[in-house]
């Protein structure tokens, strides 16, 4: 691949840059509050605006904005700030088979970030998609449908968001044959889907395959294990842009198969990678423990 030239200092020299006047000093603050950055470069903390009849209203005077000022939705350029601290840990909990605990963390994020849902760079979508998966895994069909609709409404693409299909696959009734469930998930593990949908689907496919009865035929059992491991490995190998925590969880789960295959050094390497992808979540703690065990 050849380098496409950079636009760096190529613009007319007499121009002034667009200002994105964000309040922070050189030494970075612990967490950047999430703000709406407007097209004119000014920004406002999302806690200082409310949504009223489809318009953004400033309820009380804050720096640069007056009480009652209406900010046209079209004037918002993007969302800026640090990812909510609880989001990655919530995804880690969800993928560690604790959907209810994950929802306890996700629901406040959904509420606080709802106002940003339609703007580029928002964190609501990622939280909402994780919540959809959590509701589906928890068997809460109504909430799953409700949030699926909200996600579809928030995204510019027409039709239902691809996560809705993932929710359906995860919500299949208990009477569904495992093979049907497997097929539904496999249908989502393709390059046609967004990477995060495929990554979630691959993890749940791996979890499903793990519940299959052990095959007494050694060769068949080995094949089953290979399929199971591949389901997890697909996440970091084929859909790695699906999300850091998803990569970490899948890597950690795959490490058990690698060590069962007698590949301790590969297991160790993948666990180290899981640690690098899971900072600040319970997965990091679990992966560190596992690292000690494998050393």
């Amino acid at each position: 691949m050849t380098m496409i030239p950079s636009p760096h200092i190529s613009r007319s020299a007499l121009l002034a840059c667009v200002a994105a006047a964000l309040p922070f000093g050189w030494a970075r603050a612990a967490e950047q509050p999430i703000s709406l950055v407007l097209q004119n470069g000014s920004s406002i903390n999302i806690a200082s605006v409310v949504l009223q009849n489809g318009a953004l209203v400033v309820p009380a005077t804050v720096l640069g904005f007056t009480e009652g000022q209406i900010i046209p939705v079209e004037s918002v350029d993007h969302v800026y700030g640090d990812k909510p601290a609880q989001l990655n840990p919530a995804i880690a909990l969800l993928l560690s088979d604790k959907p209810a605990d994950a929802l306890k963390m996700l629901e406040p994020i959904l509420a606080s970030q709802k106002i940003t849902a339609k703007f580029p760079g928002n964190f609501w979508l990622e939280a909402a998609r994780a919540a959809l998966v959590a509701y589906a895994v928890d068997g809460n069909s109504a909430k799953c449908t409700e949030i699926g609709k909200e996600i579809s409404d928030a995204t510019p693409a027409s039709g239902a968001d691809p996560f809705v299909a993932l929710g359906r696959a995860l919500l299949m009734p208990a009477s569904t044959k495992p093979q049907e469930r497997e097929q539904a998930l496999r249908d989502l593990v393709t390059s046609d889907q967004p990477a995060d949908v495929s990554a979630y689907a691959a993890i749940y496919l791996g979890n499903l395959l793990k519940t299959y009865k052990h095959n007494p035929d050694a060769a068949e059992a080995l094949k089953m294990d290979a399929l199971n491991m591949d389901a997890y490995l697909m996440v970091p190998c084929l859909f790695p842009s699906g999300g850091m925590v998803l990569n970490a969880v899948a890597e950690l789960k795959a490490s058990y198969f690698l060590s069962a295959l007698g590949r301790p050094s590969e297991a160790l390497a993948i666990v180290k990678s899981a640690i690098q992808h899971s900072a600040g979540t319970m997965i990091a703690a679990e992966a560190n423990k596992r690292l000690e065990s494998l050393k």
């Binding site: 636009p7 760096h8 840059c17 994105a20 970075r28 603050a29 950047q32 950055v37």
Partner: peptide, 22 residues
């Protein structure tokens, strides 16, 4: 490293900022 870490919190919006980020 302190400088680079601090950059990780910057808003990347203009082409110049994107170039710097790369």
């Amino acid at each position: 490293m302190v400088v680079f870490k601090s950059l990780m919190g910057s808003d990347i919006r203009s082409p110049a900022q994107t170039t710097a980020a790369v």
